[in-house]
Amino acid sequence: MTPALDPRPAALRPKGEAWLGWASFLLMIGLWGGAALAVNSRFLPAPWAVIAHIGWLTNEAHLLPDFAVTLGRAALGFVIAMVLGTLIGIALGRSRWVDRLFLNWVVVGMNLPAIVIAILCFIWLGLNDKALILAVVLNKTPLVITNIRQGVLSFDPAFDEFARAYRLSRGQTFRLIHAPQLVPYLLTAARTGLSLVWKIVLVFEVLGSDSGVGFRVSLFFQFFDLKGILAYTLVFVAIVMLLEHLAIGPLERRLLKWRTDQT
């Protein structure tokens, strides 16, 4: 199981098993290579051919600008959705009145097809970045709200009693009592949110954009350029894995150190 797919938080995974994640990745490449040798390379280019093609796309074509545009859109949509979703999730979790009034909206938001939201945004705002990012935010925010609301509802009232007894201010109570209890829910929202945002941004770029990875992949599709599609996919996977291992994983280990630290 790759570390990214292991359901346990990174901080809780046994350290000695890290090599298994990389072995799994190599096994996947090996299987792909074997399959490529067995079938027509037009339908399934070999991994080494795709890797060489990445070099060409980087130097001679638009790979870097395409990824820069898509990553920018995904990052912006992600940050806005996380901030909005966290604030709304806290409001829903803290106030029964707000929860009763707006929970149905969240349920509707969770279940509206992403493509419908995208089409509506493009019709209302035109085929531009604003519409695309709004569509991403509208798709992602309900998921964050649900996670954070659940986190707030799970707060241990015993710690609130401690805060009241020791007359902690609202700021102190949030920083010392509530925020640490929200961390696992925020991490889950971030991790599931990232995977969702990638997919949505790409679909929306295919649907209504003239730039970015989704747009380029749709061009490759029109020319039946499987090598191009797989090259972009591979770079995408590499970025996701880098984010997991260089950002989210270390952040999770740091924030949840109190659960596992043996020093």
Binding site: E161, Y166, L176, I177, W258
Partner: peptide, 27 residues
Amino acid sequence: PVPGLVFQDARLLPWLTCADNLRAVRP
């Protein structure tokens, strides 16, 4: 004034070190 309240279950904040648990009530 703030009483010194000792809880049945100690009620320590598990995400803070021992020193920071003390500083939680007197930063």
